[in-house]
Computed example of a mutant assay.
Amino acid sequence: MIGVEWVRTMARYNTWQNDQVMTAIRRLPHAELTADRGAFFGSVLGTLNHIVWADMLWMSRFDGGPGPEVSQKQSAGTFPTGGAWEAARFKLDGRIRIWAAGLREIDLVGDLTWHSADDNATYRRSVGLCVTQLFNHQAHHRGQVHAMLTAIGVDPWVTDLPMLPGN
Rank of each mutant, 00 (worst) to 15 (best):
W58A: 12
P66M: 09
F40Q: 00
P66N: 07
M59D: 06
S60N: 11
F62D: 03
V7W: 02
Y13E: 10
L57C: 08
D63Y: 07
G38E: 06
Q74N: 01
F41D: 06
S71T: 14
R12C: 10
A31Y: 08
R27L: 12
G46W: 03
G65Q: 01
K73D: 14
R61V: 14
L33T: 05
D63C: 04
S75K: 02
Q20A: 15
D55A: 02
K73W: 01
W6N: 08
A11S: 09
M59G: 10
Q72Y: 01
N18G: 04
F62E: 06
R8Q: 15
L48W: 06
H30L: 12
A24F: 03
T9K: 15
M10F: 09
T34I: 04
R27K: 14
L45D: 05
Q17Y: 04
G42C: 01
H30Q: 13
A11P: 10
A39Q: 05
D55N: 12
V44E: 12
I51R: 08
M10I: 12
I25N: 01
G3E: 13
Q20W: 08
N14M: 05
F62V: 13
R12D: 13
D63P: 07
V7I: 07
S71I: 11
G64E: 03
G65Y: 08
A54K: 10
I25G: 05
N14Q: 07
L57R: 07
V52A: 13
I25T: 04
R27I: 10
S75N: 06
S60K: 07
Y13C: 11
E32P: 00
D36N: 15
F62H: 05
M56S: 14
F41E: 06
A24N: 02
V70F: 00
A11L: 02
Q72H: 04
W58F: 12
W16P: 11
L33H: 00
E5T: 10
R37H: 06
A11I: 00
L33P: 00
G42W: 06
A35Q: 07
G65P: 10
M59F: 07
M22E: 13
G67P: 01
G67I: 09
E5H: 05
N49C: 01
D55F: 02
L33E: 00
D36G: 03
A35G: 03
R26K: 15
H50Y: 09
H50K: 09
R26H: 14
V21G: 06
G65L: 05
V70H: 06
L45W: 08
M10A: 12
D55R: 05
W16R: 02
H30R: 11
F40E: 04
I25R: 04
D63W: 06
Q72M: 10
E69Q: 14
W6E: 13
A11Y: 02
H30C: 06
Y13A: 11
L48H: 08
M56V: 10
Q17G: 13
R61K: 09
G42A: 00
W53F: 05
